[in-house]
């Protein structure tokens, strides 16, 4: 594995992860969202696995990608259930408005949590597939 790729990956990895978070947060009203964000994050780890090796990528991730799928599904599920607390049908969006440091009001709602769940599921699924194939 080339030195250039390894060095570049060290710089690209945080950038890609930041960009994936940007896509996730932007997704509610503009192009982006949990799915694309998750794909970009998975791509970042896949790049790392290419530049170094699969074991290193797994170590960097710390958690088994399969667990990420489960956690993501739970997060998405929970975001839908929040509506029950307000005695509304499943998946009804719940919103609150927060002002931080004079910026705002920033709308924060359960759809974002749902998107976070999607993000985790996509990262989990993609990395389960990619890392298993790379190990073959």
């Amino acid at each position: 594995m080339s030195l250039i790729l390894r060095t570049a990956t060290r710089f690209l990895l945080p950038l890609l992860l930041l960009f994936s978070l940007f896509l996730l947060l932007r997704g509610h009203n503009s192009p982006g969202g949990g799915f694309v964000g998750g794909l970009v994050a998975a791509a970042a780890f896949a790049l790392y696995a290419l530049a170094f090796d699969v074991a290193a990528a797994r170590q960097l991730l710390r958690i088994d990608p399969r667990q990420l799928i489960a956690v993501g599904l739970l997060v998405a599920l929970a975001s839908g259930m929040v509506a029950w607390l307000a005695r509304e049908p499943f998946m009804t969006g719940q919103w609150s408005y927060i002002t931080v440091l004079g910026i705002g009001p920033v709308p924060l709602g359960t759809p974002l949590i749902f998107d976070l769940g999607v993000y985790l599921v996509v990262v989990g699924v993609m990395l389960t597939i990619i890392l298993s194939l790379a190990e073959e």
Partner: peptide, 15 residues
């Protein structure tokens, strides 16, 4: 619909 999903996720966590 939700109970089988939760069950599946729980089983997935206990892989």
């Amino acid at each position: 619909i939700l109970i089988p999903l939760v069950t599946a996720v729980a089983a997935l966590l206990a892989w």
